[in-house]
Simulated assay, not measured.
Amino acid sequence: MLGTDFVYASSYVRSQEGKLLSSEQLRSMTESKNIDDICKVLQDAGYGSEGNALTAANYQEVLKEAEASFFAEVKELSKDSKALNIFCYPADYHNLKVLLKAESLGVDRDELLMESGTISASEMAKSVKERSTMNLTENMASALAEAVDVHARTNDPQMIDFVCDKYCFADIIEAAEASKNSFVKGYVSLWIDTVNLKTFARVKKMGQPWNYFENVFIPGGTVDLQVFLGSYEDDFKQATEKFQAYNIAKAVSEGGEQIDNSGDFTLLEKICDNLLVEYSREAKTVTFGLEPLVSYLVARQNEVKAIRIVLAGKLAKMSPELIRERLRETYE
């Protein structure tokens, strides 16, 4: 599709960007002593409805519904451009993970399922239960078969995550390539680099051998597998130099330093998320096209994550300072 095909859609999401929560609003929420006041601000910002007002008790449900609504709205605006499936496939694979783990434990965790994927949660549940691949992409079918097999052999639920993530990004890469849009392809490439870095950090912390990481590494990013493997025996301070040429260098140096010093992954994950927001801001220079729609969804995802951080922090009685430390950059 040409950029001119998105004239109305681009104009519409630009108008919606003005309704995004500002960093100042989020900061004020962290300072608020009354969680009901925070919920009122969020209700005014469009989270929740008259029949289902956002509260401290139901905020997870309301945010999940809001995310699904944002995705549906932008998909419709994009005339169902397959490129936007890059944001929908993670929900599909999240559902696949939830269903397989619940099945292995003999429990029902349907409340954790998401409706923002390319396949409804009920269809995915049926596919898993019946081991049917009729409604699945080729990669989803492979993920289902491999995750079941690997979990049966290892009894390690984390392997379900790793297998599903690998195939999820295979679907995402296919959608990005099909878009023939350099901005979308660049975003996906950076996204994969951040996922690989977070996996690299966690696998090292678990004390797993290098070949374990080799098996869960996701191809398609700018950072080659050998760069990670060449840093496997180093602490992050030593590894920093090897990542200097890449966009994730700051996450390695600053986030890695926190991991070396305290074992805390919070800063690394925050910087990785911020890198994606910073990249998405490049779309502000594009008048119309697929880019504004992609950046708007990134902004909305980031906003929902910020709201979860604030409300979860308030419910856990965290200090405003600690909550702010966890907040990501906003799109503004």
Rank of each mutant, 00 (worst) to 15 (best):
E103M: 11
L54C: 15
F169I: 01
K198G: 07
E241C: 06
K75F: 02
N155P: 00
Y187V: 04
P320C: 11
N139S: 15
A57C: 10
H94V: 02
E214F: 13
M1T: 03
L21Q: 07
Q60W: 07
S22L: 15
D165L: 08
A57H: 13
Y246E: 13
T266G: 04
L84K: 14
M124A: 06
V310G: 13
D5W: 01
T30R: 10
V7I: 05
A143Q: 06
S81Y: 01
K180H: 03
K205G: 15
I86P: 12
V294L: 15
C39A: 14
A9Y: 00
Q238L: 10
D234M: 07
Q158I: 07
E130Q: 10
D235I: 09
Y12E: 02
S10V: 01
L268Q: 04
V128A: 06
V74E: 11
L268F: 01
L42A: 14
I160R: 07
K198E: 10
M134C: 10
H94E: 03
S22M: 14
Q238S: 09
A283C: 11
A141W: 01
A141N: 10
Q158P: 00
I259G: 03
E67G: 10
L42I: 15
Y331V: 06
S189H: 02
E254M: 08
V184N: 05
T222V: 04
K317I: 10
G256P: 05
I218S: 09
D149H: 04
S280C: 14
T240E: 10
D224Y: 03
L197I: 07
E233W: 00
E291I: 08
A201Q: 03
A72F: 00
L20H: 09
F217D: 13
M318I: 05
V184G: 06
V7Q: 07
I323Q: 12
N196K: 04
D36S: 15
Y8E: 05
G46Y: 05
S22N: 02
I323E: 11
V13K: 02
S69D: 07
I271W: 00
G3P: 12
F228N: 15
K64F: 09
T199N: 09
E24L: 12
T137Q: 03
A147M: 05
E65C: 10
A316W: 08
Y167F: 11
I248L: 11
A143N: 13
G256M: 03
